[in-house]
């Protein structure tokens, strides 16, 4: 801006923008266009990267599926990619993945729901203001810390009363992962519960409901799709979580759901392979992409279900 035009100037017959109206408008239109292109590029970049990742996943797993049938991939219960007689049953990795995620949810659902109910229905505003940032702080703890916590603290602790527990097992990372996703699930569930209109709660209280009955019979049913979405997204995080299981669950591909044994999850397998020296075009190399694709499909479907549930709960009121 080189000159300032006031109404007084205009009154005295001076044209707007120093006589350069057309130039001013052209320049403004140009800036508008440039800004919109730049913003579009920023948005497009993130979409393109995602599409690129999916493209690479599919492209590099195609050679794998040329050698291993989809049926074998989904039904075999052995995963021995570097053996002479290699077997590729991804369910081996999926079983460990789901076991850990299941344990995590068994911790996160009751604790997260309890915490959310407490924060939304019982806690005084001052308490809530203090606890919410604390939860976000917990979310900021690096996952590698949780991994070592599982391996070096939780497993030895559990071994004192579960004698048969292996040093690497699914139980400890599952429990720790439950604590890890708890802030997220609690916070999203609490948001869903807080979004329930106060009028619904008052209707419950006016009928003589206790605080707990209002929470259990009014707030939770009204926020149910939001709460479900929170836990499905939490599940999706648990399935995709890598560091905790890579450190504390071991790297043995065992089919089965025994939480006391160690087993390699999909993510742990990918880490293990990505760090080793694999011949670039070997089937073991391509199996990493196939496993990644399987993981992608699992988390994507969880996220989709969560997304639709969230949308539904937004439309309820």
């Amino acid at each position: 801006m080189t000159s300032i035009t006031t109404s007084a100037d205009r009154d005295s017959g001076m044209p707007l923008y120093g006589g350069a109206d057309a130039r001013f408008l052209r320049r403004r239109a140009l800036w508008n266009r440039v800004a919109s292109y730049l913003l579009f590029l920023a948005a497009a970049a993130s979409v393109l990267v995602t599409v690129g990742i999916v493209y690479v996943l599919i492209r590099d797993s195609l050679p794998f599926f040329a050698k291993v049938s989809l049926l074998e991939f989904l039904t075999d219960t052995q995963w021995t990619p570097v053996f002479e007689n290699a077997r590729f049953g991804v369910m081996t990795l999926v079983s460990a993945t789901l076991t850990v995620a299941g344990i995590a949810l068994a911790v996160a659902i009751p604790a997260g729901l309890g915490l959310a109910i407490y924060l939304s229905e019982y806690a005084r505003p001052t308490v809530r203001e203090a606890v919410k940032p604390l939860l976000e702080l917990l979310e900021g703890v690096p996952t590698v810390v949780y991994g070592f916590f599982a391996l070096l603290f939780v497993t030895p602790l559990l071994q004192t009363f579960i004698p048969g527990l292996s040093g690497f097992n699914l139980l400890a990372p599952g429990l720790v992962m439950g604590i890890m996703i708890l802030p997220y699930t609690a916070s999203v569930s609490e948001d869903a519960m807080r979004a329930v209109p106060m009028g619904l709660r008052e209707a419950g209280y006016a009928l003589g409901y206790s605080r707990f009955r209002v929470a259990a019979k009014v707030v939770i049913p009204a926020a149910l799709s939001g709460i479900t979405a929170a836990f499905i997204l939490g599940m999706s995080r648990a399935v995709g979580e890598t560091m905790v299981v890579a450190i504390a669950a071991g790297q043995n591909p065992n089919f089965g759901f025994n939480p006391l044994e160690g087993a390699s999850t999909i993510t742990a397998y990918i880490v293990q392979m990505a760090m080793g020296d694999l011949p670039h075009d070997s089937i073991a190399y391509h199996s990493v992409f196939a496993a990644g694709l399987a993981l992608f499909v699992i988390t994507l479907s969880f996220n989709l279900v969560g997304f639709f549930l969230r949308r539904r709960f937004r439309e309820v009121y």
Binding site: P197, G199, L200, E202, A203, G204, A206, L207, G208, A222
Partner: peptide
């Protein structure tokens, strides 16, 4: 007190339940 005194609010606020369960709630 609320078990003896009923209330109807400015904005209709039925529970997200069936018609029957709404009336049965109290």
């Amino acid at each position: 007190v609320r078990l003896r005194i009923g209330m109807v609010f400015q904005k209709p606020n039925p529970f997200p339940k069936s018609i029957f369960e709404n009336v049965a709630a109290g």
